[in-house]
């Protein structure tokens, strides 16, 4: 039951727990490991069913989500909050695709270790010695 299946060292688990404690209740964080909250008006875009990272899909109308009409369109919220915070310019940056290797890891740790940059964009890890060529 308490076996650490993912075999993360204790200090990473500590950061992980801390980040989950702060971000899950506040932002519905899904621990993508590459947090872009600071460029999306402090509103997590990963709550979008299509996990769009660059703006609303074509079905966003009247502030509602096309997939779950009872939910707000997250990108509509991002727009409103960015306007409120004066962060509209940040929305002009293209956020790169999700690096799925980071899924489920704490982005605070990834930021500290340089695995993501200041914008929350994944940085290709440095290759250690000669990488083995496989498919």
């Amino acid at each position: 039951m308490f076996f650490n299946v993912k075999a993360k060292p204790w200090y990473i688990r500590l950061v992980d727990i801390g980040e989950q404690f702060a971000k899950v209740p506040l932002f519905d964080c899904s621990m993508c490991g590459q947090c872009v909250l600071r460029s999306t008006g402090l509103t997590c875009p990963m709550r979008c069913p299509k996990q769009m990272r660059n703006g609303p899909c074509g079905g966003s109308m009247n502030g509602k989500c096309e997939v779950f009409p009872e939910r707000p369109c997250i990108w509509n919220l991002i727009w409103e909050r960015s306007e409120m915070l004066g962060w509209e310019e940040k929305l002009e940056n293209i956020n790169p695709p999700v690096d799925w290797r980071l899924w489920g890891t704490p982005s605070w740790w990834n930021l500290l270790t340089g695995r993501i940059d200041g914008k929350g964009h994944a940085v290709e890890p440095k290759k250690e010695s000669e990488p083995s060529k496989t498919n």
């Binding site: 703006g55 609303p56 079905g59 109308m61 509509n76 002009e92």
Partner: peptide, 23 residues
């Protein structure tokens, strides 16, 4: 690429066109 002039908020859909153009 696609664009939807009928989506809300409209300035954001224009911005998305701009992103697609940049891409």
């Amino acid at each position: 690429a696609a664009a939807n002039p009928f989506g809300d908020p409209m300035p954001f859909h224009v911005l998305k066109v701009a992103k697609k153009r940049l891409a």
